[in-house]
Structure formats: C-alpha cells, structure tokens
Design a protein around this nucleic acid. Structure first.
Lengths: 371, 371
DNA sequence: CGATTATGCTCGCCTCGCGAGGATAATAGG
DNA sequence: CCTATTATCCTCGCGAGGCGAGCATAATCG
C-alpha cells in the first residue's frame, strides 16, 4: 500500500510521466514498479498507454495517466459574479466543465444553479469540493461580503450522504493549484495572492496549503496594513483589503464606492487618463509594500499573483516592484523572491478544489474506500 | 527502519511513555514493539527502565527514555544580553546547562565565550544548533540590530567539520519548543510570539515550524502594522516591531529612546505611576490588535506569548484582549484562539534549537549515520 | 493465595520490495 | 535488411520486517 500510494501521488503530481522516470524518481526497483502499476491498473486507478516515439534510443517506457474509469472529483467554484462546475480526474485534468453567471446573487438561487450539473449517482465520484469567494470554516461560509452571504452551509451540494463535501476559499485554493501545477511548480515555499474585491491567498509549503485550524487561513487581506480609521465590512479596522482593489482606486480618484469594484478596477486600469494612471500607480505601490511585509514574515521562494494583482504586475510592474522593495527588510533586497503572474487563470479555484479532495483520496483510507 | 523511526519519534515527543502506551499509539503488535525496542536498545538510542508502581492492576510496562550513551545535541542560545549553552538528549531533557552575560557584545567576544563550553570531541554529539536574537538565513546572521551584528557566520562554533551546524532565530525556535513541549502541546496550529526588543515568532503546523525558504520566516515584527512614516532599523518602514516594546513605551511617554529597551520595558511595567500604566495599556492594546490581524491571516488554534508579550498578558490582560478582539474579523470573535503564556520560559530557545537538530537526526539518514 | 487484569515474549506466516538475469523494443550504422 | 547498442521491462527467488495467536509473566484484588 505504501509503495502504491507513493506511485499514485507521483502520477497525480506529474501526469504523463513514463514508468522509467517514475521508477527513478521514487527509487524503486523495476520489479516493484511493474508489480505496483499492475495492481493500480486492476484497481482502475491508473492506465498505461503506449509510449509516444521520443526519437531516442532504447526500449520505450509506457506513459502513466489517470484511468478512464478512475475516481473523479466534482469541483465547484462560486465567484463574485459567476460559477463553474468541473469534473476533475486524477492528475488534475478537467474532463467536464460547465459555467455561468449569477442571475441572482442570493445564496439559494446560486446553489440551485450550481447543483444542476453535479452528477447525482456516479460511482466514480469521490467528493464534491467547493471553492467560494468568502471566508470559510469547515463546510460553512461564515462571511462572503461581495455575495452578501453570511453563515451559509453548503451541505445541500452533496449529492448523497456518502460523498464527502469539502469547502475552501477560492483564492486559497487557486494558490494551492498555482503552487502545485502553475507558476509555483516544484517550488518549496510559495505565497499566492489574489486581488478581486479585497485580497486573499495562501502560503503553500512543500505542496501543503497552510489553511489553519478551521480552514480560514490565508485571509491576508485582513492584516491591518491600512488606515487604522477605516472600518472594514469584516468587522476589523485598517484592513489591507480596502487599500488594494477597485474600491481603493475609486477612493483615490474621489469617486463614490463602486457597485462592482472588480469591473470598475478594470475600467480604471484600461484608462489612458493621467489621473487614473496615477491612482493605479499608487494602489499598485500600496499592494507591493504589503507584499514586502508578508515576504518579511513568511519568507517564500516565490510570490504568485492572480486577478487584479496580476494585472498590476502586467501593467505597472515598476510601481508594484517599487512598493515591494520598499516594504522588504534591507537584507532581503539583494535576492527577493520573484513576483510571478498566475499561470492557471480562472481555472485555479476548481483545480485547487480538486487537489484538496485528491489529497484525501490519496491516503490509506481513501484508497481502501475505493476497494 | 520505518517502524524504528516511528517509535523513536514517539519516544522523543513523549519521553517517559510506557511500551504499552507506545504500542497502542502507533498501532503496533506487541511482537513488533518488542523487536523494535530491542533493536533500539542495542543501537544505544533508547533505554527501558523498570516501570514505577502505578498502583494499577496488571503487568507493569517498562518506561522508554533516552539512552544514557545516546546521541546529544549542543544547543546554544545567543540573546540580547546573555548566552546559554546546553546539552540536550533525546526527549528534550537538558543534561548540561551553562550560561553567562555578555561582557562585550562584539561578535568575536560573544562567540569566543560561547565556544568554550561546546564539547570538542564527543562521539555522542550529533549537531551544534544555535538560537540567535537576529534574522537568520542558512547559517548566517544577516541582521541582529540589538547585538549590532551584520552578516556574521557562525561556522566557528562547529567543533569539527563532521558535526552539522544549524542556526535559527531565537523567537522562532522558542515557539517551536512551545508548540511541541510547552503551552501548545498536542495542538495542531500554534502561533507563537515573543516580544523582547522588537517582536519575533513562528507558526507551527502539526509540529513543523514554518521557517520559510531561507530560514528567515517568522519575522512578524516586520509586518507594516505601524506608522508608515517611522523608519525601522531593518530598512523597511512602519514595522510592528517599533510599536510593541520598550521603545514604543518610552516614545509614548515622551522619553528618549532607551539604551536598553528590554530593561526599560520592565521598569515601566512595574511602575505604579498612572502615566506609565496608560502607556503600558496603549502598547498592550496595539500588540493585541496586531495579534488579531495575524490570527485573521494564519488561523491558529492557539497563540502562545513569551517575553514582554507574556508580561502584558499577566499584567494588563484586559488591554491586550481588547486590542486582540478589536483586530479580529467579527466571525472569529465568537471563539477566538486563546492567548496563553509560554510554559518554557527562557529555556525555550535552547529546547527549540535541539528540536530542529533532532528532526534531522530522526530520519533514515540521520539514523544510518549513528550506525 | 488463587482470580483477575494487563502486558511481554516466541514463533510461524505473510506481504512487499529488492535485485540479478534474461527478454524485449526502440534507434544507429553499415 | 541486419546486427550492435541502448534502455527498459519482466520473472523469480530472497530477505526484511510486521502481524497475531498462544503462552508466559507480573502486578493488584478480595
């Protein structure tokens, strides 16, 4: 079981490896590798497909991928304005993907819409895993300011009581995906930050997300980096959240609080107006300075950026880097962790949601449950 | 080797367990437990001593402890004003302990003093592990403001090239010790904070310290929670560091920057003067508010406090808790992680230093090196 | 002083991974 | 087209190490 688990985890993390590569990576003998893969094929967990002609010499090594009848996860992403339901197989490939925009943001309406595409009686389904734009504890959404939700239990998304339900913050899960399969691939300590409306993220150490005691870790937007007098909808004051998004840019420009801060942010970002450019620069600098502080505290190898933060990196990299450097302790300035754009885009949350579900599956117990 | 390692780690984490408890905890058969302990006794790693009369029925179970000729770590603590050199055996017991105050704070002088008690040719010595009051990357001290050191390499403390040298921040290592053997025992996610001159700490998840990519993680004092205009010796501005210690209290009282902020802090803390009490209250509140922000971001089960933070908790708990609650997101206020005083006191850094060294020893390779 | 309770020890069994030796499948070169 | 070369896969006997049944041992209870 030990060896089988190691193989399965390696295939999951590196879909499309050859058996020879796997044997070397795990330090197995070729005999053990043969026996273990044979067992996993019988269990309908992995499939070996004929090797593509590499052009190199020697006997070709078969490629290991997810079994076509293997376990799948239903990954759900509930964002500020849209939702997505995907089926994900071992190795992180999306084999089905449905999405839509919220017609009505009320919790009931959104959950009804999202529930439709969730398969109801699929023996292959091992878990429903939800990424949601809000603060999460266990399987409850305790606070989702932009959706206007408070204390919503997602248990209704469970197709039957036997299927486990997992819930996490969308920015945190996107960060996990980014660390494992995106810009942070093969990096030990990755700090991911997403700015949409407010800011979220996660620290991923050796592939493990630091989600804290209750699952509400990674709420970096509620560190008091901002103006101590400014009240945040979260209940605290001076949150960084309020200083780095469309609300902050509108405030900087003397505009009223926008109804849809994310769209407003994009509008200002695309504008050629000098005042707008200045506001973008100032907010990007503020974001950068906070990133510097977080890097001081958490010491990552790499920072990955999504959403509006990714846009700042693309549009005003000097401002972002100036703030970043300014916020760093001087000894870190010689070789600061690079800021990199997210590689997974809007697929991050669903891929991350599937990851945590597969983490539970790829254990002694999870495998035992799969026979 | 697998089973032996598990047993050894369990004995290290729970010194003084009986073999019966261990067998149950690891789910071993009594036969395996017997064979493994026999092997570990031959290897001079553990010793079985006769069970003390528990008064209960049944055959008594022998107690497992460190072997008297087993491996030891030389743990060194270099603080602002004093140093300590201890010998630590498996299980975390200090079997030797020498300390002194710095006569001269220059790096050379301190290292000379500290080098004396380090055993030179002890076959039992597996590592020298140093806790130091400064920022650390690898085995270098990159910045230690209160000692006045910059870029000091501690390689001179290595008694011979075969003995590994480990270096870490004292507050981070004290936090690791606290999480494993102190107030955070058996708790999944522990946030530890120490205030002496400035603030340091660590997040410990499942017993693993989140020391980051270079070992400089846990520098929570350099999060920009403070006044954006105030320059920190670290090179950044607005550091929390400057708002929570003796310097902050002196500033609040309109006094000049104290030469020894730690002593000054204790003096103000012990004073009955109303202005002094008010300053203490304000600084404790500021500290509490920052702790709230950190709890928002990291979501620990428990926060442990050392040094001046521990004194605040003892002397002005209302102020500290008021700030703490104020800094928390409102959904966390119903059941916030408790703030607990450190249980290990000034032994924290050396115990933590020994822990990281034993972590390296209690591996396949570490055990192979011990024959 | 037996009964009860709890634990330790012995020993055959079984699982799983190792590794040597031969088989297999590709390219390279004549 | 055929052989050499390279790289990998498969078969199979071996050995390490953990399991668990059955018995031995050591304490308290009444």
């Amino acid at each position: 079981m030990q060896g089988a688990l190691a193989v399965l985890r390696h295939v999951h993390a590196h879909p499309g490896v050859t058996r020879a590569e796997l044997t070397r990576a795990l330090g197995l003998s070729s005999g053990s590798a043969a026996e273990i893969t044979a067992r996993l094929k019988v269990l309908r967990l992995v499939e070996e497909t004929e090797a593509p002609a590499t052009g190199g010499r020697g006997r070709p090594s078969p490629v290991l991928t997810a079994h076509p009848d293997g376990p799948v996860i239903c990954a759900v992403d509930i964002g500020h304005e849209s939702w997505r339901v995907a089926t994900v197989e071992l190795g992180g490939r999306l084999v089905g993907d449905v999405s839509g925009r919220h017609a009505d943001r009320a919790a009931g309406a959104v959950l009804d819409a999202v529930r439709q595409p969730i398969p109801q009686a699929d023996r292959r389904l091992r878990a429903v895993s939800v990424a949601v734009a809000g603060s999460v504890q266990g399987t409850r959404i305790v606070q989702a300011a932009t959706l206007g939700w408070r204390d919503v239990d997602l248990a209704v998304l469970r197709p039957d009581p036997g299927v486990p339900l997992l819930v996490g913050n969308d920015a945190s899960l996107a960060g996990l995906a980014e660390a494992r399969r995106g810009a942070g691939f093969d990096t030990k300590v990755v700090l991911h930050l997403t700015v949409e409306v407010g800011l979220g993220g996660i620290l991923v150490v050796d592939g493990r997300p630091m989600t804290g005691a209750t699952g509400a870790g990674g709420e970096f937007g509620h560190l008091p980096f901002g103006d101590r007098e400014r009240q945040c909808p979260c209940g605290a004051r001076g949150c960084w959240d309020l200083e780095v998004d469309g609300r902050a840019m509108a405030r900087d420009l003397g505009l009223p609080e926008p109804r849809d801060p994310r769209t407003e942010a994009d509008r200002i970002l695309r504008s050629a107006d000098a005042a707008h450019r200045a506001a973008v620069t100032r907010v990007a600098t503020t974001l950068g300075r906070g990133i510097g502080g977080l890097v001081n505290a958490l010491d990552p190898d790499l920072v990955t950026l999504s959403g509006l933060a990714r846009s700042f990196l693309a549009e005003v990299p000097e401002a972002l880097h100036a703030g970043y450097t300014d916020g760093l302790m001087s000894f870190r300035r010689a070789a600061p962790p690079p800021l990199r754009p997210s590689a997974l885009g809007d697929q991050g949350p669903v891929i991350g949601a599937a990851e945590v579900a597969f983490d539970a599956l790829l254990t002694e117990e999870g495998l035992a449950a799969w026979e």
